[in-house]
Write a protein that binds this DNA or RNA. Structure first.
Lengths: 244, 244
DNA sequence: CATCTGTCAAGAGCAGTGCTCTCGGTTCTT
DNA sequence: AAGAACCGAGAGCACTGCTCTTGACAGATG
């Protein structure tokens, strides 16, 4: 989405200089949009470049001018999906008062679940099994961290608000292993608390995945109430004051 | 895997009466084996009936005599995968003394992770995003419950051993929602404990999925130690005595 | 033993896929 | 205005899942 800016140094970023570049940006967006629509109905494996081209009234080979391969188109969709779920979580979290740690935690959880239910195939794309034969390029790692960054900030705020470090045993091996990332992204968060937060992190996506992928079929009926309870319990486990 | 038995009422089940039936069973197994091998290298979406046939030295249309469609072959692989991971978990759990609740919990967790790492594509098939355009038939639900059944038995044993029900708040809505399945599969397990167990259940697969699908890249290095610690913490959260 | 029925592998063929290459025409740059 | 870069169209390659037909064979029946 920012390739144009990289390639055209001396142009304003909102309106590309040439008409060609403008048309290109427009068409790139349209391709992604229809691809996303196809993704929503057919799923990732059913995403066909030819079908997308057909929908746009162009010939299949023309699409290759914009995305050199099907995987590149997929990558663009993955980046967009990470950005979208990150933005959804950020918006939900920001709507809560900063001191309401439990509310912010629940807001993030609900936003993640809500976005996943609204965009199941896009969620599968980023948190489901990786598309076989497709290796996520490095462009995807940055937007992929937005939700995690939100949770880390929440932990940091909790520490500032006086949240005690839990007294779990934490093996030295794990403590040392976490140190590099702790120093880079989680300054100020004690290791034991960080470990608990990371457990909550993967458990959140585990719960969403279980619901979305059908593993709660015939087990739970009121998925929303169930999810809310489990995430509240998880939040309390970390130490957030969650009412429930 | 039991179609022959259903269709041939008056035959011993170990040795099919006719040579033809024997050959058929043999070839069915061979097709599944090579399909599994292809799955391991190409992934689910790359599973090609023609390629499987080629490997077996037969023509593609012949495979359709054994599996009416690609999806049916996939279903067979899914059933086998559920059975295999269930068997792995059962075997690991059974190797622990019955009273060692924490050890049994950790054995199950490690077995699930170990099997997943050994068979990543098969794991993706059953616990990753569902294959698009493919609806899991009812044949798959039974073997899919083996790991969960193991955990429920563990909870039951814990109750018998005197494990107290946690004093979390549990909304009446969730309690009522869980009642039917509680009465069918989880008799004797108090609702609050059951809820915690189910959180651990989805968290276990969330953790395995996160590792397998690359979400811990550049976050954790020593995945095994990290996993062990998180599962130990989770086990203690349920109330199992896990040393760590 | 002969015959009849059901099963099997083989091959051709259909519609679809990702992707490459070439061919003209347009557009931007110098 | 000339040259370069870009673009859409079309043909074509190798592949896919799947269907249909054909001829060979095995097993039960007369």
């Amino acid at each position: 989405m920012t390739e144009v800016d990289h390639a055209a140094p001396a142009t304003t970023r909102s309106a590309p200089a040439t008409a060609r570049a403008r048309a290109r940006a427009e068409l790139t967006r349209e391709i992604k949009d229809t691809a996303r629509r196809h993704l929503a109905t057919e799923g990732a494996a059913g995403l066909s470049l030819r079908a997308v081209a057909r929908d746009l009234g162009m010939v299949s080979s023309a699409v290759y001018r914009y995305f050199p391969s099907r995987d590149d188109l997929l990558t663009a969709l993955i980046v967009d999906a990470y950005d979208a779920i990150g933005a959804a979580a950020e918006a939900a979290e920001a709507s809560r008062p900063r001191r309401d740690l439990g509310g912010r935690w629940m807001a993030i959880c609900r936003a993640v679940r809500g976005w996943a239910l609204d965009h199941p195939h896009e969620y599968s794309l980023i948190y489901g099994s990786p598309v076989p034969g497709y290796a996520a390029p490095t462009d995807t790692v940055d937007p992929a961290t937005r939700v995690a960054a939100l949770l880390l900030q929440l932990l940091r705020d909790a520490v500032d608000a006086g949240l005690d470090e839990p007294d779990d045993p934490l093996p030295a091996r794990v403590r040392n292993d976490l140190r590099p990332m702790q120093e880079t992204y989680a300054t100020g968060i004690p290791a034991r608390l960080l470990a608990r937060g990371m457990l909550a992190w993967s458990s959140l996506f585990g719960a969403v995945g279980f619901e979305l992928f059908g593993h709660l079929h015939n087990v739970v009926d009121d998925h929303e109430a169930y999810f809310d309870h489990q995430m509240a319990a998880l939040g309390r486990y970390i130490g957030f004051p969650v009412k429930g």
